[in-house]
Design a protein around this nucleic acid. Structure first.
Lengths: 227, 227
DNA sequence: CACATAATTATACGTTGGTTTAGGTGCCAA
DNA sequence: TTGGCACCTAAACCAACGTATAATTATGTG
């Protein structure tokens, strides 16, 4: 799509990269030319190992893989990447693939699986989708790691209080649970709000939610029973 | 898996159903026997239309579809079902499928895509996964529709206040935004808390989040500037 | 030892939140 | 017209929240 062209023009430094891994040199070059023609940056590799060992840029982008690779197969490579925490979206190509192969790849999260010969436009569409997908994933990932770093700056007590606060307990109840005075809870609470960069309780709850903290316990009812 | 057998034994009334759609009678019956052998209920259809028109039970379960069907094709059927809000997980079978077909099906959310001949165990595994997936989806869907019904019980004003509350504004700020007195906001707030079944602000924020309400606006900073 | 940090508590003050009681308006349908 | 509902407001009160000041204790580091 021409959206990609615009992007590449605008954000040249952070423009996405298409990593091509194929043992056939002519295929690599043909694909490289295709992607360059729409303004995308390209990096070429002849095998999975070459990709893993090379000091590839960790830029945003996607992988275009031949299923049949020397050494590690494309599908095993996919598994390995996932295990290594490398979450580049993957587009598979194959000359002699079969249905189970494509299904396995798609189940494992591949963006597309193209049987050769494919139309150039199909490949470009797949890459565009993959790049957008990666951009989204990166945004989410950045936001999350920022939250994680804020979370790790909390003291154990603050962390405890955070959990109870986000589960809807009042300071008084938290104090009782932790065997503290209410004022102490307030202090911890104020500190953790500042450390977490939360400008309101609603904000804090959302951040905790993103961090997987504070499930639906909410013991308010229990204490209401006596009221 | 034998987990299915246990399930069927325990919850006979709500046991999941495998809807089989295939134009070949012998295939239908063979699959039917297979699924029954592990304790699953089965309903058989010869075509997409037959399934759509028949007053099938809207039980939990999954669809097992031949890609090639008389009339509507399996893939078009999948599209149609999604458009109709029928979200049964789908497992495709095919005798003469190709890779693009399987990829399209998987992209559209199919649980699996089995090329004939397939191993019976593969089909059973796929069905087990699909049924679990449907059970999860149904739980989520129920919870969400419950929330939606509570949301719809709010008056327009309460709905407005809800959005501002969940975005972290103080009663005072909400009152200013809506041109109301603070006490009025408090009243609306109390009413909506009751109607939404929220026992705490944290609870309310989570429910609003699930409903897609109250993004990260949080204008607290803006008003802090003057304080 | 001196210092920093974490954790705790208390007093005090001001702000915010939440409910009750008691009223008022406007609209729409029976 | 009467009743119900949504909507708005006020006074009054209490509970909860948040912060500042000040002090104590323990732990660990330079």
């Amino acid at each position: 799509m021409n959206a990609i062209v615009k992007n590449a023009t605008f954000v040249a430094a952070a423009s996405p990269v298409v990593f091509i891994v194929d043992d056939d040199r002519s295929v690599r070059e043909a694909l490289s030319a295709l992607f360059r023609s729409v303004g995308l940056r390209v990096e070429l590799y002849g095998s999975a190992m070459e990709f893993l060992n090379g000091r590839r840029s960790d830029a945003a982008g996607c992988l275009v893989l031949d299923v049949r690779l020397p050494g590690l197969s494309g599908l095993d490579f996919q598994t390995q990447l996932a295990a290594s925490g490398i979450h580049l979206p993957i587009i598979f190509m194959t000359g002699h693939g079969d249905i189970p192969m494509s299904v396995r790849a798609m189940k494992a999260g591949a963006v597309d699986f193209l049987a050769k010969p494919f139309r150039e436009q199909d490949m470009l569409d797949a890459v565009a989708a993959a790049i957008e997908c990666d951009a989204r994933r990166r945004r989410d990932s950045e936001a999350l790691s920022s939250l994680k770093s804020m979370l790790s700056s909390l003291t154990p007590r603050e962390r405890e209080v955070l959990e109870h606060v986000t589960s809807g307990l009042m300071n008084k109840q938290i104090a009782a649970l932790l065997g503290l005075s209410e004022i102490t809870v307030k202090i911890h609470r104020g500190n953790l709000m500042r450390k977490m960069g939360a400008r309101s309780l609603a904000d804090l709850v959302r951040k905790a939610e993103a961090l997987g903290i504070g499930a639906p316990s909410d013991l308010t009812m229990a204490s209401h029973a006596q009221a």
